[in-house]
Design a protein around this nucleic acid. Structure first.
Length: 882
RNA sequence: GGGCGGUUAGCUCAGCUGGUUAGAGCACCUGCUUUACACGCAGGGGGUCACAGGUUCGAGUCCUGUAUCGCCCA
């Protein structure tokens, strides 16, 4: 066994072993509880990043944990065609080659995309495997697969028939570069420095002007009204009158509308229903006409009069200049406002009126809201439930059509003869109304999130009645980043309830975003993206898993640094070396029978470590139940390193050297084996590797299996708890530490063995039994037990109060008395300060009366301990020679 | 404008329903080739838990307000 753990030696073969054994495939068994996680399908746009890695690690931990508990665990992997995202990526590639999708044509372009998808699809699968993901490959799905595609069409048809999908002319977000409509969610707002322009509109049929303030002067060409607050005294008398639009000459009715904020600008708003969603609504309320002055290519239309043909930003300048020349520009103020950008290509989004398909969302949102309110769905962390509810309650109809080529084509065929729309799951060949063959399919595709919204059930075979649907639906936990709560989680809920009548999962577990060491979001443009595979090459999968999921709380962002990775790698190495020690000790060992159950523990060290392990098992399960993965890992880390390695192994060395009876070998093996199982969901590879080597050397007991992956997860056993052993060992450890402490403080050479006198204060048996351990671990040559240390008649006695025990170390001339006096005085002050605080608490009448009994009792015991300690210290100090 | 989160050791972060002397990793200081591990061992220093009030026998933890940083929504 090599001195250092080398992950790359073991990870590949182990993963292949698991695959070959089919451990990732659950057995459908109605008598068993299923545990189901549907993987958030990564986009097939490129390599996986650390955000994906975090998602997969969290899910793998949960799934492995449940699988080891004997549940039928299904983790269903998949990939998303990611309509606009993928199309943009491939278009960029085409641009580099000097061509475009238009040049290629729809069919050829789609072929190109499929090529891309095959390449990256495979890469993603391989990356997942390297991450140790125990997902069910035989059920792998792609959103454009026939099954999920049929689910998409079926849902579309159903919603259409219920009147929940409609086609309408509405204001939508338009990306000029992508030439497509976007949903509200696909628009990202950025604060931008701009201007607020005050423009004078002459009043019709009377003298004077009304001044409006706008951030987008070029849209004025499409104004069809002016709005003021109905109660605004400045403008009240103008309501019902008209203004005249400069350049165009159109007469603009002045209307009163509550939506106007009298405080903003001049309190008068130019209304452009064709290019602003707020204005669109105002226009609807007051029957204002819609004029489109910016075309879907971003250039001014014929309606823009003299500005026709100019780019929208060019037109902005030109309009302002012209206004200034005509003395209609009152003033310009600098102004910060948020501007919408296309999520995928960062082009400024243009609100446009366009004919699109929409989902009427209210009737779908309502049941989803109720499911949450009735507790059918739980969100972890809970605070996101309110965020989610608030969003659901204010949700607007969802624009689902995209003018893209890559995606699920809308299953609607328009009849050239009678204009009837045939909406059908199967490809239509004739008009369902007049039977005409002259029908053409809608050229648009559906929003990617439409198919993602069905993912929890479309992957299990819906709309068919399948064994999978029957057994695995509804799923258990939806684990994903909080950034797609609205995009995805909300839509899955709505669609899941709509299609199946049941919420698609009972728990939503949200994790945070992975940031770099400076706390910045990782992005390609910033160049701070860390490639998970590279990190795996350097540190190993288990270390990366541990680093990403340790010390984090649900829903909180986390920073990944080299430090964390190194520390996780070191932990893996620590485990490796502890195992090396155990394995070497087990070589040719006899009498290991019973290692699995350990029914007859007599040695207090053994009872101690088994008791501690049992407590850790309890804690880890407790934390996992609450999705506190970071805390669960910390428990194991600390137990393994600070208790098992630092103390139990060190103590066992003493016993092994002495060949004492009982031998610690069985317990060394037992605790290591159980800890490996406990740790396996978090660090699957190293635990499997060590477990194999370990179990090879042990008699087959407890139904030992061929892989740790399918071994049972440790469960708490109250019979293992041993408070006496725990308090004994705690005293022993304190004793050893205290002596080491003094040695270090007084700079006693490490190789020098000291003589000691020990006043056991009721711990005679402990000190007697553990004499050899004390000698070895504290580097004491020999000691004798006395009744009072200060009467031992030794020179230069340094006295240590170690828990309840008192130790005297005759250091003769070694000791600087002044130094020693300081040390003791410092310790005494600390003790008596503590004592004062506790006594103050105890002396309050209310405390005894109101605090729970166990708390009071604990404080009393503490006070007694502190009092004793402080008395001892005073005595020692008093007898210190001047 | 509305909402949410953070503010805890030099840095990065844990700390559950209020109850030991507030923890970890890294960094720092001292000493160690102790036959599992220097990716290590032993010992140590370092925190008025952002601030101000309040509730309580008891507050890092609950409430109110302030400051500051960040996120989401409009």
């Amino acid at each position: 066994m090599p001195r250092a753990y080398n992950p790359s030696d073991v990870e590949g073969p182990i993963y292949r072993f698991w695959m070959d054994k089919g451990y990732f495939t659950p057995v459908i068994d109605p008598s068993k509880k299923p545990f189901v996680v549907i993987m958030p399908p990564p986009n097939v746009t490129g390599d996986l990043h650390l955000g994906h890695a975090l998602t997969f690690f969290m899910e793998d931990i949960l799934v492995r944990w449940h699988r080891m508990q004997g549940e039928a665990a299904l983790w269903l992997p998949g990939k998303d065609h990611a309509g606009i995202a993928t199309q943009v990526v491939v278009e960029r590639q085409l641009a580099k080659e000097g061509t475009s999708r238009q040049e290629l044509g729809r069919e050829k372009f789609l072929e190109r995309v499929w090529q891309w998808v095959r390449q990256y699809g495979n890469t993603i699968d391989e990356q997942l495997k390297r991450m140790g993901a125990s997902c069910e490959w035989s059920r792998l799905r792609f959103t454009l697969d026939p099954g999920p595609s049929r689910a998409v069409r079926t849902t579309f048809v159903n919603l259409y028939k219920k009147g929940l999908i409609y086609r309408g002319e509405r204001i939508i977000n338009w990306c000029i570069r992508c030439s497509t409509a976007l949903s509200d969610l696909e628009v990202e707002y950025q604060e931008t420095e701009g201007g607020l322009y005050y423009v004078k509109y002459p009043l019709a049929d009377q003298e004077g002007f009304i001044t409006v303030a706008t951030t987008r002067p070029e849209t004025m060409l499409g104004d069809t009204g002016v709005a003021v607050h109905p109660e605004d005294p400045r403008y009240k008398n103008l309501i019902g009158k008209e203004a005249v639009l400069p350049f165009i000459g159109r007469r603009l009715p002045i209307v009163g509308d509550d939506a106007i904020d009298p405080e903003f600008g001049t309190g008068a708003l130019k209304v452009t229903p064709g290019h602003d969603p707020v204005d669109f609504d105002i226009g609807q309320r007051h029957n204002l006409t819609i004029v489109t002055v910016i075309g879907d290519d971003g250039a001014m239309t014929a309606e823009a009069g003299p500005f026709q043909g100019q780019d929208r930003f060019q037109a902005r300048k030109a309009v302002v200049e012209e206004l200034a020349r005509l003395r209609l520009l009152e003033k310009t103020e600098p102004h910060r406002h948020s501007v919408g950008h296309c999520q995928r290509c960062a082009t400024v989004v243009e609100p446009l009126v366009s004919k699109q398909w929409f989902v009427k969302i209210q009737p779908l949102a309502q049941p989803a809201i109720e499911a949450l309110q009735q507790g059918q769905i739980r969100i972890v962390p809970e605070r996101y439930a309110r965020v989610y509810l608030n969003w659901m309650e204010n949700i607007r109809d969802w624009c689902i059509s995209r003018q893209l080529w890559w995606g699920h084509r809308i299953p609607v065929w328009r009849c050239e003869d009678c204009e009837h729309l045939t909406v059908s799951v199967e490809d239509a060949s004739r008009c369902e109304k007049c039977g005409s063959m002259e029908i053409t399919q809608d050229p648009d595709v559906l929003d990617t999130w439409f198919s993602s919204g069905l993912w929890t059930h479309s992957t299990l075979g819906w709309p068919d009645t399948t064994e999978d649907m029957d057994y695995f639906y509804p799923t258990s936990v939806m684990e994903t980043g909080y950034d797609i709560l609205f995009f995805w989680v909300a839509r899955m809920r709505m669609m899941g309830i709509e299609n199946t009548g049941k919420p698609p999962f009972h728990t939503v577990f949200l994790h945070g975003l992975v940031r770099d060491a400076e706390g910045l979001k990782m992005s390609k443009t910033r160049g701070n993206v860390l490639d998970p595979l590279q990190l795996i090459d350097i540190y190993g999968t288990d270390a990366l898993r541990f680093a990403l999921t340790t010390g984090t709380a649900p829903g909180n962002d986390l920073r990944l640094s080299e430090d964390k990775l190194e520390s996780s790698r070191n932990f893996a190495n620590k485990l490796w070396n502890a195992s090396r020690f155990v394995l070497r000790s087990l070589e040719d060992a006899q009498g290991l029978e019973g290692w699995h159950d350990l029914s007859d523990l007599s040695h207090r060290e053994d009872r101690w470590i088994v008791s501690r392990l049992n407590e850790v098992v309890r804690q880890v399960n407790h934390y996992l139940e609450r999705f506190e993965i970071g805390e669960a890992q910390r428990e194991i880390y600390e137990f393994l390193w600070s208790e098992y390695c630092d103390w139990y192994i060190e103590l066992s060395k003493v016993r092994l050297r002495e060949s004492s009876d009982p031998s610690p070998l069985r317990v060394l093996a037992h605790v290591l084996e159980k800890t490996l199982r406990l740790l396996h969901p978090f660090m699957p590879f190293i635990t499997e590797e060590v477990w194999r080597r370990l179990t090879e050397r042990l008699p087959t007991e407890g139904g030992l299996l061929e892989s740790i992956m399918i071994a049972p997860y440790p469960q708490e056993d109250p019979a293992r708890a041993d408070p006496q052993a725990e308090s004994d060992l705690s005293q022993l450890i304190t004793l050893v530490r205290s002596i080491r402490n003094v040695r270090a403080q007084l700079r006693v050479d490490a190789s020098q063995k000291l003589e000691a006198v020990i006043d056991p204060k009721g711990h005679q048996d402990l000190i007697q039994d553990e004499a050899q351990a004390i000698k070895t671990l504290a580097r004491v040559g020999s000691f004798q037990m006395v009744e009072a240390v200060e009467n031992a008649g030794k020179d230069g006695l340094v006295t240590v109060v170690a828990g309840e025990v008192v130790v005297g170390l005759p250091l003769g001339g070694v000791v600087d008395l002044a130094n020693e006096r300081d040390r003791l005085a410092h310790e005494l002050k600390e003790t008596s300060d503590n004592l004062k605080r506790v006594e103050a608490l105890l002396s309050k009448a209310d405390f005894a009366a109101k605090a729970p009994e166990d708390v009071v009792e604990r404080e009393r015991e503490r006070a007694a301990g502190l009092r004793e300690r402080s008395e001892r210290l005073e005595e020692v100090l008093a007898q210190l020679p001047e």
